[in-house]
Simulated assay, not measured.
Amino acid sequence: MPHPHLWPALVGAFVGIILLSLAAVWLVTRWKTLSKRRRWVLLSVLALVEVAYWLNVYAWFIEPNQLVVRHVEIVSEEWHGAPLRIAALSDTHVGSPHVDAARMGRIVQRVNELRPDLVVLLGDYAGSHEPEAQRSGRNQGEVLGGIATFAALRAPLGVVGVLGNHDVWYRRGTITRALEEAGVAALWNRNVVIGREGGDFVVAGLADDSTGDPDFSAALDGAEGHDTIVLSHSPDPFADMPRGPALMLAGHGHCGQVTIPLIGRPILPLRNKSYGCHLVEENGKRMYVSAGIGTSIVPVRFLNPPEIVLITIRPANAQPAIEGA
């Protein structure tokens, strides 16, 4: 069954196709009785309305259910160890329209097919805004079931994540426990050191920017001298990130969910709109902002499909691998 929030759109789509069909029949039956000018005016109006209708159908029902893999290569002077392949997932919003635990299982399988060294999760695993106590048992089960699918992630260096504002609104303790039970190291202003043959590195995770207090000093405590990656749900703290970390990864804004050609992204829930989407470079620092998986507020996407990001970070003096070598 469709998510309850999609029913108005489904009804609208059904009524819309009927009205468009009736309008087309009316125009065909009266075509010979209309003046040439009126024929083409009415035909143009009908064509524009139909284009708008199908664009809406695409944005409500098709693009939100797509999945793309974005391959990103970062060459950094701040990275000294062996190259590292990181798969990043953000804003899964399980329990909201388009994303349930079953779909999350398929997304996890796709991540595993990419064979990353490390998987990072960038927050907002829960859909909707209500606290845990106000949700139905079914919705609670859907949210926690979606997080439980992370237990199937396969990466030799593990899975590390941070929490987002929706997770804190749901209940921070519940989401943290669910992540840990799925084998995810859940970070909140702290870090983990990951050992490997190609050189140890640090993954530092910040507190959520809108419901907590991101603290770089605490998150990076002991990281000096290590290759470092910073995780943050929101990209806004990037402005305060000190030099040293090779890369920051973030989500939160879903790349606006909707991009209008020649206009841009009309809605970005960020203080710094220049941090809206994908690769950001500022003052010698780098950040990648993911479009995420799910939706929030309005369950639409247009020219911002759900994505898995596969990032390869390598030192500036490293030579790229040659395929087939």
Rank of each mutant, 00 (worst) to 15 (best):
L89H: 07
T92D: 10
S274M: 07
F14D: 07
G195R: 15
A207R: 05
S274Q: 10
P4S: 02
V111P: 02
G95C: 08
P116G: 04
P83W: 11
I147V: 14
S90D: 10
V162M: 08
S90T: 11
F150P: 02
D236E: 08
S210D: 02
A13Q: 04
P237F: 06
E307F: 04
E78G: 08
G284Y: 04
R103L: 11
L163K: 03
A155C: 07
V143D: 07
T29Q: 09
L20H: 11
T312R: 15
V300Y: 01
R85L: 12
L268M: 14
G225H: 10
Q66T: 15
Q109K: 14
V192R: 12
R265D: 02
G256M: 02
G198M: 02
I313W: 00
V51Y: 01
T176A: 15
P299I: 13
G127E: 08
R190T: 13
G173C: 09
P315L: 11
L89K: 04
C255L: 07
G225Y: 12
D91R: 11
P261Y: 11
A59F: 10
G16N: 04
L247F: 00
N65T: 07
S290Y: 04
I175C: 01
N65L: 11
M104W: 03
V193Q: 14
R70S: 15
S234W: 07
G251N: 06
D209M: 09
A291L: 02
G145A: 05
L10W: 12
A239R: 15
N112R: 11
G173F: 11
E181P: 01
V45F: 15
G81I: 09
W40L: 14
P305Y: 08
W40R: 14
W60H: 03
A207Y: 03
R196I: 06
T211P: 00
E307R: 00
T211N: 04
V159I: 13
S21M: 11
G212K: 04
A182W: 00
D240T: 03
G146R: 07
G276S: 06
I267S: 11
C277G: 09
P261W: 12
L114V: 09
V41P: 08
W60E: 09
R70N: 15
V193M: 09
D91H: 14
E281S: 14
G294H: 03
K32N: 14
Y53C: 10
G105Y: 03
L34Y: 14
D215M: 05
I293G: 02
G324P: 11
L144K: 04
R115F: 04
T259I: 13
W188M: 12
A178M: 09
W7M: 15
G95M: 07
P214L: 12
V49A: 14
Y58L: 08
E113W: 04
L247P: 00
L89T: 06
T29M: 12
W26N: 05
R314S: 14
P131Q: 02
A88H: 01
G205H: 08
D240I: 00
A186V: 09
H98N: 13
S76P: 06
A88Q: 05
H3E: 12
C255I: 00
I313P: 03
V69C: 13
L84H: 02
V143R: 04
I263C: 01
A152E: 12
R286F: 06
T312I: 05
